[in-house]
Amino acid sequence: MIIVLIGYMGSGKSTLGKELATALKFSFLDLDDYIAKEENASVPEVFNNKGEIYFRKKETEYLSKIINSSDNLVLALGGGTPCYGNNMALILENENVTSVYLKLSIPLLAQRLFLERSTRPLISHINSEEDLQEFIGKHLFERIPFYSQAAQTINTDAKTQEEVLEDLIALF
Protein backbone atom coordinates (compact mmCIF):
# COMPACT_ATOMS: atom_id res chain seq x y z
CA MET A 1 0.00 0.00 0.00
CA ILE A 2 1.12 3.52 -0.80
CA ILE A 3 -0.39 6.43 1.11
CA VAL A 4 -0.11 9.69 -0.81
CA LEU A 5 -0.47 12.90 1.20
CA ILE A 6 -1.85 15.84 -0.75
CA GLY A 7 -2.33 19.45 0.32
CA TYR A 8 -1.11 23.01 0.11
CA MET A 9 2.40 23.87 1.22
CA GLY A 10 2.50 24.18 4.99
CA SER A 11 -0.35 21.71 5.52
CA GLY A 12 1.94 19.21 7.25
CA LYS A 13 2.42 16.60 4.52
CA SER A 14 6.11 15.96 5.24
CA THR A 15 5.95 16.29 9.01
CA LEU A 16 2.86 14.11 9.40
CA GLY A 17 4.02 11.78 6.64
CA LYS A 18 7.18 10.90 8.54
CA GLU A 19 5.20 10.27 11.72
CA LEU A 20 2.56 8.21 9.91
CA ALA A 21 5.24 6.12 8.21
CA THR A 22 6.89 5.44 11.57
CA ALA A 23 3.57 4.49 13.18
CA LEU A 24 2.66 2.11 10.33
CA LYS A 25 6.23 0.80 9.91
CA PHE A 26 6.23 2.09 6.32
CA SER A 27 8.98 3.94 4.47
CA PHE A 28 8.62 7.68 3.96
CA LEU A 29 9.45 9.68 0.86
CA ASP A 30 9.03 13.36 0.07
CA LEU A 31 8.60 13.72 -3.70
CA ASP A 32 10.46 17.05 -3.81
CA ASP A 33 13.42 15.52 -1.96
CA TYR A 34 13.38 12.57 -4.37
CA ILE A 35 13.36 14.91 -7.38
CA ALA A 36 16.23 16.94 -5.91
CA LYS A 37 18.28 13.78 -5.38
CA GLU A 38 17.57 12.40 -8.85
CA GLU A 39 18.24 15.75 -10.55
CA ASN A 40 21.29 16.57 -8.42
CA ALA A 41 19.81 20.01 -7.71
CA SER A 42 17.29 21.56 -5.35
CA VAL A 43 13.74 22.03 -6.64
CA PRO A 44 14.22 25.83 -6.94
CA GLU A 45 17.45 25.21 -8.90
CA VAL A 46 15.67 22.84 -11.27
CA PHE A 47 12.90 25.44 -11.74
CA ASN A 48 15.38 28.26 -12.34
CA ASN A 49 17.86 26.37 -14.53
CA LYS A 50 15.62 24.11 -16.58
CA GLY A 51 12.19 25.73 -16.26
CA GLU A 52 8.84 24.72 -14.87
CA ILE A 53 7.85 22.57 -17.88
CA TYR A 54 10.97 20.41 -17.44
CA PHE A 55 10.31 20.19 -13.69
CA ARG A 56 6.65 19.17 -14.15
CA LYS A 57 7.58 16.48 -16.69
CA LYS A 58 10.18 15.04 -14.31
CA GLU A 59 7.75 15.29 -11.39
CA THR A 60 5.20 13.16 -13.28
CA GLU A 61 7.89 10.70 -14.39
CA TYR A 62 9.20 10.22 -10.84
CA LEU A 63 5.70 10.06 -9.32
CA SER A 64 4.75 7.31 -11.76
CA LYS A 65 7.96 5.41 -11.08
CA ILE A 66 7.47 5.60 -7.30
CA ILE A 67 3.81 4.59 -7.18
CA ASN A 68 4.33 1.73 -9.61
CA SER A 69 7.39 0.24 -7.95
CA SER A 70 6.97 0.80 -4.23
CA ASP A 71 5.04 -0.74 -1.40
CA ASN A 72 4.41 0.17 2.23
CA LEU A 73 5.25 3.79 1.57
CA VAL A 74 3.98 7.17 2.73
CA LEU A 75 4.60 9.69 -0.04
CA ALA A 76 4.33 13.44 0.56
CA LEU A 77 3.67 15.34 -2.67
CA GLY A 78 4.59 18.91 -3.47
CA GLY A 79 1.61 21.26 -3.15
CA GLY A 80 1.29 21.63 -6.91
CA THR A 81 1.92 18.03 -7.91
CA PRO A 82 -1.75 16.92 -8.07
CA CYS A 83 -2.59 19.87 -10.33
CA TYR A 84 -0.28 19.14 -13.26
CA GLY A 85 -0.23 16.66 -16.09
CA ASN A 86 -2.07 13.46 -15.33
CA ASN A 87 -0.73 13.21 -11.78
CA MET A 88 -4.11 12.88 -10.03
CA ALA A 89 -5.17 10.22 -12.54
CA LEU A 90 -1.94 8.30 -11.86
CA ILE A 91 -2.75 8.37 -8.15
CA LEU A 92 -6.47 7.59 -8.42
CA GLU A 93 -6.13 4.80 -10.98
CA ASN A 94 -3.53 2.83 -9.02
CA GLU A 95 -5.27 0.26 -6.79
CA ASN A 96 -2.23 0.16 -4.49
CA VAL A 97 -2.51 3.90 -3.71
CA THR A 98 -4.73 5.72 -1.21
CA SER A 99 -4.70 9.51 -1.28
CA VAL A 100 -5.38 11.79 1.68
CA TYR A 101 -5.94 15.54 1.43
CA LEU A 102 -4.70 17.42 4.50
CA LYS A 103 -7.03 20.42 4.51
CA LEU A 104 -6.12 23.56 6.44
CA SER A 105 -7.86 26.95 6.37
CA ILE A 106 -6.31 29.91 4.57
CA PRO A 107 -5.68 31.95 7.77
CA LEU A 108 -3.86 29.03 9.41
CA LEU A 109 -1.83 28.30 6.26
CA ALA A 110 -0.82 31.96 6.07
CA GLN A 111 0.11 32.02 9.73
CA ARG A 112 2.34 28.95 9.35
CA LEU A 113 3.89 29.94 6.04
CA PHE A 114 4.54 33.60 6.80
CA LEU A 115 7.30 32.68 9.26
CA GLU A 116 8.99 30.28 6.83
CA ARG A 117 8.49 32.19 3.58
CA SER A 118 12.23 32.78 3.13
CA THR A 119 12.65 29.02 2.54
CA ARG A 120 9.74 28.83 0.08
CA PRO A 121 10.54 30.48 -3.27
CA LEU A 122 6.90 30.69 -4.34
CA ILE A 123 6.05 33.07 -1.48
CA SER A 124 9.42 34.57 -0.50
CA HIS A 125 8.48 37.93 -2.08
CA ILE A 126 5.30 38.38 0.01
CA ASN A 127 5.78 40.83 2.87
CA SER A 128 2.55 40.77 4.85
CA GLU A 129 0.31 38.05 6.23
CA GLU A 130 -2.69 39.75 4.57
CA ASP A 131 -1.05 39.57 1.13
CA LEU A 132 -0.08 35.96 1.83
CA GLN A 133 -3.69 35.07 2.68
CA GLU A 134 -4.81 36.61 -0.61
CA PHE A 135 -2.12 34.69 -2.54
CA ILE A 136 -3.04 31.40 -0.85
CA GLY A 137 -6.75 32.01 -1.46
CA LYS A 138 -6.22 32.49 -5.20
CA HIS A 139 -3.92 29.49 -5.38
CA LEU A 140 -6.28 27.23 -3.44
CA PHE A 141 -9.18 28.26 -5.67
CA GLU A 142 -7.24 26.73 -8.58
CA ARG A 143 -6.01 23.69 -6.66
CA ILE A 144 -9.05 22.57 -4.65
CA PRO A 145 -10.67 20.80 -7.64
CA PHE A 146 -7.59 18.53 -7.70
CA TYR A 147 -7.11 18.20 -3.94
CA SER A 148 -10.78 17.32 -3.42
CA GLN A 149 -10.42 14.24 -5.64
CA ALA A 150 -8.38 12.55 -2.89
CA ALA A 151 -9.92 9.35 -1.51
CA GLN A 152 -9.95 10.84 2.01
CA THR A 153 -9.91 14.37 3.43
CA ILE A 154 -8.81 15.30 6.92
CA ASN A 155 -9.63 18.80 8.10
CA THR A 156 -6.70 19.72 10.31
CA ASP A 157 -8.02 23.05 11.62
CA ALA A 158 -8.23 23.24 15.41
CA LYS A 159 -6.40 19.92 15.79
CA THR A 160 -3.02 19.22 17.27
CA GLN A 161 -0.43 17.37 15.26
CA GLU A 162 -1.07 14.33 17.46
CA GLU A 163 -4.84 14.45 16.76
CA VAL A 164 -4.26 14.66 13.00
CA LEU A 165 -1.83 11.76 13.21
CA GLU A 166 -4.47 9.72 15.11
CA ASP A 167 -7.00 10.56 12.36
CA LEU A 168 -4.53 9.42 9.71
CA ILE A 169 -3.69 6.17 11.52
CA ALA A 170 -7.41 5.45 11.94
CA LEU A 171 -7.80 5.44 8.14
CA PHE A 172 -5.33 2.57 7.81
Score class of each variant (00 low, 15 high):
12 G>N: 06
137 G>N: 12
118 S>V: 15
101 Y>S: 06
168 L>P: 01
59 E>F: 05
83 C>W: 06
58 K>W: 06
130 E>Q: 03
61 E>W: 03
88 M>C: 00
39 E>H: 07
19 E>V: 00
125 H>A: 08
16 L>T: 06
129 E>M: 12
11 S>W: 03
133 Q>K: 15
12 G>S: 07
169 I>K: 14
52 E>M: 07
60 T>H: 12
78 G>P: 12
146 F>T: 01
153 T>S: 14
32 D>M: 06
145 P>L: 11
167 D>S: 10
135 F>N: 03
32 D>K: 08
90 L>R: 05
153 T>H: 02
44 P>N: 09
84 Y>L: 00
33 D>N: 12
133 Q>I: 06
106 I>Y: 01
100 V>F: 02
26 F>K: 04
139 H>Y: 11
30 D>G: 00
37 K>T: 14
21 A>W: 05
147 Y>E: 11
170 A>F: 01
56 R>S: 06
167 D>T: 01
6 I>N: 08
53 I>N: 11
27 S>L: 04
92 L>N: 15
21 A>D: 10
171 L>R: 12
161 Q>G: 12
37 K>W: 03
64 S>I: 00
170 A>E: 09
128 S>I: 10
129 E>R: 13
1 M>Y: 01
47 F>A: 08
136 I>R: 04
132 L>N: 01
170 A>T: 12
84 Y>W: 07
8 Y>Q: 04
165 L>H: 03
23 A>V: 11
109 L>R: 07
75 L>R: 05
121 P>A: 08
138 K>L: 12
156 T>E: 05
58 K>Q: 13
16 L>G: 01
25 K>M: 02
24 L>C: 05
137 G>T: 14
87 N>S: 09
31 L>P: 02
7 G>Y: 04
75 L>I: 10
11 S>K: 08
106 I>H: 01
100 V>C: 01
72 N>Q: 13
36 A>G: 10
118 S>W: 00
79 G>R: 07
59 E>H: 03
156 T>R: 02
111 Q>S: 14
143 R>K: 09
31 L>H: 07
52 E>T: 11
53 I>R: 04
104 L>K: 11
162 E>K: 12
73 L>P: 04
21 A>H: 01
123 I>D: 02
149 Q>L: 15
34 Y>P: 00
135 F>T: 10
43 V>N: 05
130 E>S: 08
48 N>Q: 15
